[in-house]
Amino acid sequence: MADTRSIWEKLGFRKASGVGEAGWGHTLFAAIISLIYFLPVLIIILTSFKLQTEALAVPPKLLPTTLFGLIPEQYVFSPTLENFTSVFSRAYVAGGAAESTGFDRFFFNSIFIASTSVLLALVIGTLAAYGFSRYALKGNDTYLFIILTTRMLPAIVVIIPVILMFRISGLSGSYLGIILLYTAFNLPFTIWMMKSFFDELSPDVEDAARLDGSSEIKVFRKICLPQVLAGLAATFVFGLILTWNEFLFALLLTGVDTRTVPVAMNQAVGGGGIGVLWGLLAAIETLFLIPVFLVTFFLQDHLLRGVTFGTVKR
């Protein structure tokens, strides 16, 4: 039989079919698009290895190597790790002694606040989602709509009273306050997502277990929970990405001790223009990106399965 494939197919492209397999040709195409899309991030990462003069150079210094002579010398910078050390300690006055910038504390705060609030939202939200999914509550849909609505509201609507509330109750600048607030931010999303997962499970297995005398708690722990692990992972990633970078509330509600990295980053930026220490800022962002990037990468497969929200027809 003659080879009827077109030249494109021989190169590794397949006819578009929505789902399906494609070869190395498609990989090449996707790689070009992905790298162009990733370019602004790549420049941030490269800038973190540049000195201030190199970051502001005209013509721009693009790469750390000449790529075996391919790139003219004027576009090449010599990479330095200075920015990364000065994230944590640097001299504020020229020639002065290096002082700690407190960024180790801010990184700890970001990790502690984001992970605690996302996990708390995951625990509370999963219980609530199970409740909504398995028990007929009066006005079930109304509750769910109200819960979703709280996510839809512009942050500016609640920010004034939240500031006042935190000021009066003494929660301002405490870990507890900001963690509870972020938990509340993550809850609507967590509940909707986990409910769609519980809704997809077949109730037959649970009924069989109940007939065998399993308690409600055991049914939840041993039968339902193991089946929604992918959903838990996806919800965790989404919540983490959103909480990790939250800026407005963190700016207004965290104190010196509880400041998160985005707020500290904003203060490190200073006035803008030439005054910004580009290499330093890039180093902060690069370090700040690593944890959430790794978590997303390792939970990536679940992420894709997790976002279907149950809106997809079965």
Binding site: S34, Y37, V41, I44
Partner: peptide
């Protein structure tokens, strides 16, 4: 579609979403 290295290219495209808005 499924293609070689898809996982690694996909994470590159997802990265902008993970950056701080600042």
């Amino acid at each position: 579609k499924q293609f070689p290295l898809r996982k690694y290219l996909l994470i590159l495209v997802l990265t902008p979403m993970m950056l701080s808005v600042v």
